[in-house]
Each structure stands twice: as structure tokens, then as C-alpha cells.
Amino acid sequence: MKPALFPYLITALSSAEFTPPATLAESLHSRLAVHRQTVRHALLETLRASYPAIERAVGSEYFRAVAAEFIACSPPRTPVLQEYGSEFPEFLQKFPPLQAWPWLADLAQLDWTRQIVTHAADATALTPQTLAALPEAGLLQARLRLHPALRWLISPYPIDQLWLRQDEEHHGPELQWQPVSLQVWRPDAQVMQRRLQPGEAQLRQGLRAGARLIDALQSARQAAPEFDPDTALAALFTERLIVGVDTFTQRNKQ
């Protein structure tokens, strides 16, 4: 095949429908179909691996159909397939046939967040003993570095309960339709997720933005009056979310 045909083939092999040119011999068409099948199979399997909760929610047959539409709209730009599909949540949100299920896009975002956390960098977390050893005043003025394999997200829908449902027949926990704030993290090999208490997301947001602990705690308290700083701080260490404490004595002196 000559390079002049490459752009044509890229489109022909990833589009949802493919009408071969009338001039194309039948035997050639069916041989091109082998490549087309390889491409579609690989991309479908990639999306299935990255969006397991969406496949459980809509069923595999529907998933296959919606994935084909997505693949045609957003073909991959990278050969690293585990990074393919980040736009799928947004696609689901806008996909007209799914407008009656607005929570699907948020559920997909949870799947994608888990995918990111799965492959994020490793780091060694500080132990609760490290926390105990730090003088309190110094700690409050310090900047705590969060684990690279930590993400959080909020949703108006109970996406954690939806994530646990096993199939489109809704087997699984009884849903309570309320907003959730979720943390997804991987302290070791296994990806974990849990609901955050009011203020905990703001605390993480502050820390990731580089705020001093005291300021991050304060903004958490402002966001949620019931925020308990001691419990929240202890959780950061017991959940192995802190990988460094930068005290700024040196910088203050300068």
C-alpha cells in the first residue's frame, strides 16, 4: 500500500459503517475486512477494560453499539491504548439516546478515574508515626504532598453505588439518590474508592494546589462547618495519601 492511501485507510478502518468503493473487488473487500475487524476488536476491548461499570449498566450488546459510535467519532491518537477513551464520559453525556440516564456520564467518569489511578505513578507514603513525630505547629505550616495515585470527584448521583451494581437488571445495593464526593486511590497494587466526608475534598484540593496545611484545613472548614480536622488529617496518613511533608523554615528565613 502506498502512503497516498494511508489517510483513506485510517478512516475506512475506524468508521462505524464502511461502504467499500464500487470499484473494489469483493475479494479485496473481504481482505480489508480482516484489518477492520482487528481494529474494531482491539478498540472495543480497550473500552470494555476501561469502562466496566458502563458495560454492566447498559449491557454488553448496547455497550458494543455505543462504543462503535464513539470509536467513529473519537478514533485513537495514541498507540498506548490504556490512554484511549478519556472523552467517552463526555460522549455519553451528549449521546442523544442516553439523555434519560444522565448519571451514566458521571459513572463513566468514575471508571476513567479508576483507570488513571491504576496506571498513575507509585510512591512511598509516610506512616501515621511520621505524623505523630512532627511538632504540631510545624506541621500546620507545612505543605503536605499528596500521593500521585489519588483522585477525587463529585457527582449529583450515587455513582459509587451505581458502580457496584452488577448488571442492567439493577442487582446490587439499594440506591439512595443523593450527591456524592468520592476518593479513588491506590496506595499499593489495588485501586480503592470511598466516599469523602464534607470538607475532605476541599482539604485535598487545597493541598494539591500547594496550600499550607493550616490554610487547606481552614478552607475545608469554611466549605463544611461539620468538618473535623483531626479525623480528616489522621485519614490522610492512615490511607497512605501523604508522600512528603515540606516544612518551610528555610524558606521563611530567607
Partner: peptide, 17 residues
């Protein structure tokens, strides 16, 4: 083989002349 062109990638090993 080739698999990328103009910032698009196909997960396959495509033939060249």
C-alpha cells in the same frame, strides 16, 4: 508495518508496498 498517520492511530499492523 504502519499504524499511525496524521495524528491518528489504528491498533493494527498495516501493510506497505
Amino acid at each position: 508495518a504502519w499504524s499511525s498517520h496524521a495524528a491518528r492511530y489504528l491498533p493494527d499492523l498495516l501493510p506497505l508496498d
